[in-house]
Computed example of a mutant assay.
Amino acid sequence: MAGAVIRNTNLEFFTARADQARAEAEAATLDHVRERCRRSEEAWNALAAKAARSEKLRAEEALRKSQQVTT
């Protein structure tokens, strides 16, 4: 169970960092700073998407294994 907590925390962390980068981009007055923040947001969103996919696959695999044990 502790592993699931770590993965959820990573997903939440990645999402929070993307939100922070988005807010910084919106507040930026310099174009190069705004673009840097947007690139950062894109990278954090990609990490969050990967973490979400991994979590989904782990859950599906756990379900598949639990069904094998019970049959």
Rank of each mutant, 00 (worst) to 15 (best):
N8F: 01
T9R: 11
T9C: 12
T9H: 15
N10E: 14
N10V: 01
L11K: 10
L11P: 02
L11M: 01
L11Q: 00
F13H: 11
F13T: 13
F14P: 00
F14T: 00
F14H: 09
R17L: 00
A18C: 09
A18V: 03
D19V: 05
D19C: 01
D19S: 04
R22E: 14
A23R: 13
A23F: 08
E24K: 06
E24L: 14
A25P: 07
E26K: 08
E26T: 14
A28P: 03
A28T: 06
A28K: 01
T29Q: 12
L30V: 04
L30T: 10
D31M: 03
R34H: 05
R34C: 13
E35W: 07
E35S: 13
R36T: 10
C37M: 04
R38M: 06
R39E: 12
S40T: 06
S40L: 09
E41C: 11
E42G: 07
A43R: 12
A43P: 05
A43H: 02
W44L: 00
A46I: 05
A48Q: 01
A48Y: 10
A48T: 08
A49C: 05
K50F: 13
S54I: 00
S54D: 15
E55N: 15
E55I: 04
R58K: 09
A59N: 15
E60M: 07
E61Y: 06
A62S: 10
L63E: 15
R64D: 14
